[in-house]
Design a protein around this nucleic acid. Sequence first.
DNA 1: CCCCTGACTAGAA
DNA 2: TTTCTAGCCAGGG
Length: 92
Amino acid sequence: MSAFEDAVLEVLGALQPGEVVTYGEVAAEAGFPGAARAVGSILRTSDANIPWWRVVGAGGQLRSPHPGRQKRLLEMEGVSLRNGKVLVVRNH
DNA sequence: CCCCTGACTAGAA
DNA sequence: TTTCTAGCCAGGG
């Protein structure tokens, strides 16, 4: 496991229900600003039990390969969506 | 070391 | 508003 993956998993593990973050934010908080794309790679490959549905693209877009499932999971946690986008993402 | 891929982004057309 | 382009980073061949 790389230090990068470790840091990212830690950040994701700290997320609470209803808390949504963007790929870029996760990368930054993990200490690798600019590695948003690499964060996506981890969600795509990692087998770890991580709350992947709480990670969205910039602007609240659902970029996962299963937007329907993601939307359902988010709404189940009380996150409101509008046109397939999350309204409030943790902003800078 | 080179080249390509992708659950990313910001900015220009 | 939608589409393209050019940077970005970690992985894999």
